[in-house]
């Protein structure tokens, strides 16, 4: 007991309970995805789940379609979000923190509610639900997640660099292409991470926006994993998604600081 007290009077040891918690509730569950992905119903090792994924066109096609949708959504978010972030961060155009907050607030509103709200919009205007609605809804849902990191990065740009460029005679367009744009790219990468990953893994949004017509990969995973006889196949599909996430994170060099939608 005494030893116990002495051990925990050292402050560095206070992280130990959380370390164990992280191992149990973060690391182990991720390993279990791998574990179940290579298992059949009887609990024997197998790679059949992956063979099935390639041979049965259904899941594979949904997968490719989902990646496509995610790419288009990400591009649309950059297209609409980048100018917004630029305007928000430029003191010539915007000095108010409230406007910035208005753009970031939707990040925190339950995306189910936001999706249903978009469905409502389509209902009222009489536009049909379907692929178009899906693209609109996804862009609508994830746009703040693109604006926020780009805005953040732009705000961190050393203002003296911009002033120096202006002093040396660069026009506003030149300042943008030679200074601001290159320095804002890390923010775009974070934004890509924050939009692409959730879009590729989304599952409820597509069902609501297309009246169950279009299923994305996330929905397919959900259907398989919730049934005990297809759970292993579901785990294999999750592992494939996990790989995509890992590759994207590595590729964009994700740093958590920029991604966490913290305070403004």
């Amino acid at each position: 007991m005494n030893k116990f007290v002495r051990y925990f009077s050292k402050r560095s040891s206070w992280s130990l309970p959380y370390f164990i918690f992280l191992l149990l509730f973060v690391v182990l569950p991720l390993l279990l995805i791998v574990f179940y992905a290579f298992r059949d119903n009887q609990g024997h090792f197998t790679v059949d789940n992956f063979v099935k994924f390639v041979q049965q066109k259904e899941a594979l096609n949904t997968f490719i379609y989902s990646v496509g949708i995610a790419i288009v959504t990400t591009l649309l978010c950059i297209l609409f979000g980048y100018p917004a972030a630029y305007i928000l961060s430029n003191s010539d155009f915007n000095k108010s923190k409230t406007t910035v907050m208005l753009f970031i607030l939707p990040m925190w509103v339950n995306f189910l509610i936001r999706t249903l709200a978009t469905v409502t919009l389509f209902d009222i205007t009489g536009l049909p639900l379907g692929q178009g609605a899906l693209m609109f809804g996804l862009t609508y849902d994830f746009l703040p997640f693109m604006i926020y990191p780009i805005y953040n990065t732009m705000m961190k740009i050393d203002k003296s660099l911009i002033e120096a460029a202006q002093d040396l005679g660069a026009s506003r367009a030149k300042v943008f292409t030679k200074v601001i744009f290159p320095l804002s790219l890390p923010g775009v990468l974070s934004g890509v991470l924050m939009v692409f990953l959730p879009t590729i893994s989304t599952f409820a949004i597509s069902e609501l926006l297309t009246m169950n017509d279009i299923q994305l990969f996330g929905s397919v995973i959900q259907t398989y994993i919730m049934q005990s006889d297809t759970m292993n196949y579901g785990a294999a599909l999750s592992l494939i998604m996990l790989l995509i996430i890992g590759i994207t994170s590595l590729f964009t060099g994700g740093d958590a600081e920029n991604e966490s939608p913290g305070l403004i």
Binding site: F25, F35, I225, S238, M241
Partner: peptide, 14 residues
């Protein structure tokens, strides 16, 4: 960093 669905599935499997 993990999307919700991965967090959810991994804990479900746990």
């Amino acid at each position: 960093i993990n999307p919700d669905i991965i967090t959810g599935i991994s804990l479900f499997l746990l």
